[in-house]
């Protein structure tokens, strides 16, 4: 029905307007921050530690109240009455960085059931949701184990299941890949891809530039509580001064691509690769005969010895 209304554009899923907040009245943790996040996007929030990422997240879920400014979800200003908050927390879920912060129960099943129980679903429905969440995050086999016996990665998956069981539209991930092994990071990213395919809006903070660049389709840069830039990852990560000012770094795929372009091996016109696979695909076009003449074994050895001496 709503599709027919052409005049009225669908409101942004989340809009933050001139949001300010401070914990101790001296330093502003958020300083007139504004951003809007459309539905179904993969959003990355970049910024140094203490830039205000976690504080921002706690506002989106109604845990913190803005000192000034406002938060809108689906065009509605967030209200802090009990019933409104319950509605908001059903829509917006947060997965915290340290799973030990989130797991309060010794029992995996019970911990995951906490959210849906708070939403006052009937028992059978809670059970169904818990089982579904355990299936998506593949923790069903951990069900009989106490949480303190689980590894960090396993705890993380249980914590995610605890939020998924509430079936939120927006999932906020506070540094979800921090202190995970590389293969677990990959597994985690696949899980997020599944959630993205299912139509969820994902908002992630991370210090992993390569990951952010390859994954996101919208980036925000926070610095000292302010949103200093936003745009596509291509825009953000090709802006060298911006990266320098905010202590961010260029992803390695872009560095390699720039080097190859400078060497004349890649055409400057090809669109910048986002991932390793895209870069390698672009590199396949490199004329291998040219490579050979440039890098003969003798030359390679000679360059090596000169580098050493």
């Amino acid at each position: 029905m709503k599709k027919g209304g052409l005049k009225e554009a669908r409101p942004q899923l989340i809009a933050v307007e001139n949001l300010s907040f401070s914990y101790d009245k001296r330093v502003l943790a958020l300083d007139r921050a504004s951003m809007s996040i459309p539905r179904g996007r993969k959003v990355v929030i970049l910024g140094a530690n203490g830039a205000g990422k976690s504080t921002l997240f706690l506002h989106l879920n109604g845990i913190l109240r803005p000192k000034s400014g406002r938060v809108l979800v689906e065009g509605q200003e967030v209200e802090y009455s009990r019933s409104h908050l319950s509605e908001l927390r059903k829509k917006v879920g947060i997965i915290f960085q340290d799973p030990d912060q989130q797991l309060f129960s010794v029992n995996v099943f019970q911990d995951i059931s906490f959210g849906p129980m708070n939403l006052k679903y009937p028992r059978a429905e809670v059970k169904r949701r818990v089982e579904q969440a355990m299936e998506i995050t593949r923790v069903a086999d951990l069900q009989g184990r106490p949480t303190h016996q689980l590894s960090h990665g396993q705890k993380k998956r249980v914590a995610i299941a605890g939020v998924l069981a509430m079936d939120p539209e927006v999932i906020i991930l506070d540094e979800p890949t921090a202190s995970l092994e590389p293969c677990l990071v990959e597994e985690m990213m696949q899980l997020f891809e599944t959630l993205h395919q299912a139509g969820k809006t994902l908002i992630m903070s991370t210090h992993d530039m390569d990951l952010a660049y390859g994954w996101a389709d919208l980036c925000f840069v926070l610095n000292q509580g302010r949103v200093v830039a936003h745009g596509s990852p291509e825009e953000i990560f090709s802006d060298q001064p911006l990266l320098r000012q905010n202590n961010l770094q260029q992803p390695w795929v872009l560095k390699v691509r720039e080097k190859l372009t400078a060497m004349g091996l890649l055409a400057a016109s090809i669109c910048p690769p986002r991932t390793e696979a895209q870069l390698f695909a672009a590199m396949n076009c490199i004329d291998s005969s040219g490579m050979k003449s440039n890098l003969s074994p003798e030359l390679y050895l000679a360059s090596n010895t000169t580098a050493k001496s």
Binding site: R89, Q102, S105, F109, S113, F114, P116, M166
Partner: peptide
Amino acid sequence: ARGYTDSLRVLEE
């Protein structure tokens, strides 16, 4: 964040 209001209600296995 997961909707805690006054009690830690969970579903028992």
